[in-house]
């Protein structure tokens, strides 16, 4: 969720108030930073940060799961806008974009091949009656044994 608007960088232009799709922000007093008024509506899309030309916003990544929320670490301020190429650092921001499809398919092929391999192994083990303890216990857990190719 949006976490900080840095007063020392913010010009009070209120662009982020308009740009946020979920109406999270209200304009501040004249020239002052906007107010984070409805943070529960924030969908962590980073788009306010992308549109802020002064890198005055940091969107933190909260919620349950692995890792810990980092609070506005200096190296990450402005990083996202830079990665998108919206900071003027490149005139060809989408040069790698064509690889999206091929990489997505390659990932699917990797997973599909892995699955087929495991099924074949499971079949041949069942046929020869060579299932080990590990296979039995993991089957009881609703999973399959470790991939012997791993």
């Amino acid at each position: 969720m949006i976490e900080d608007i840095f007063p020392e960088r913010c010009t009070g232009c209120n662009d982020c108030v308009t740009v946020c799709p979920d109406h999270v922000l209200d304009p501040g007093a004249a020239g002052a930073p906007p107010v984070i008024a409805r943070v529960a509506q924030c969908q962590t899309c980073f788009l306010c940060e992308l549109y802020c030309a002064h890198d005055a916003i940091y969107v933190a990544v909260e919620g349950a799961g692995t890792g810990t929320t980092l609070h506005h670490p200096t190296p990450l301020i402005g990083r996202l806008r830079h990665d998108y190429g919206w900071d003027g650092s490149t005139d060809d921001p989408l040069r790698a974009f064509w690889q999206l499809g091929p990489l997505l398919r390659e990932g699917l092929e990797i997973s599909a091949a892995r699955h087929t391999r495991r099924q074949a192994t499971a079949l041949s083990e069942a046929a020869t009656g060579q299932e080990g303890d590990e296979a039995l216990s993991s089957r009881a857990l609703g999973t399959t044994p470790k991939d012997p190719a791993a």
């Binding site: 899309c45 980073f46 969107v59 933190a60 990544v61 692995t66 890792g67 810990t68 929320t69 980092l70 990450l76 990083r79 996202l80 990665d83 998108y84 190429g85 921001p93 040069r95 790698a96 974009f97 690889q99 999206l100 990489l103 390659e106 990932g107 990797i110």
Partner: peptide, 24 residues
């Protein structure tokens, strides 16, 4: 993951990288 992915994912989908990077 595909070998070429780590080098380009940041350029293709910066927000996906941020989802991890901002949790260390």
């Amino acid at each position: 993951a595909p070998k070429a992915l780590p080098d380009v994912v940041r350029q293709i989908q910066p927000a996906t990288v941020a989802a991890f990077e901002r949790r260390g």
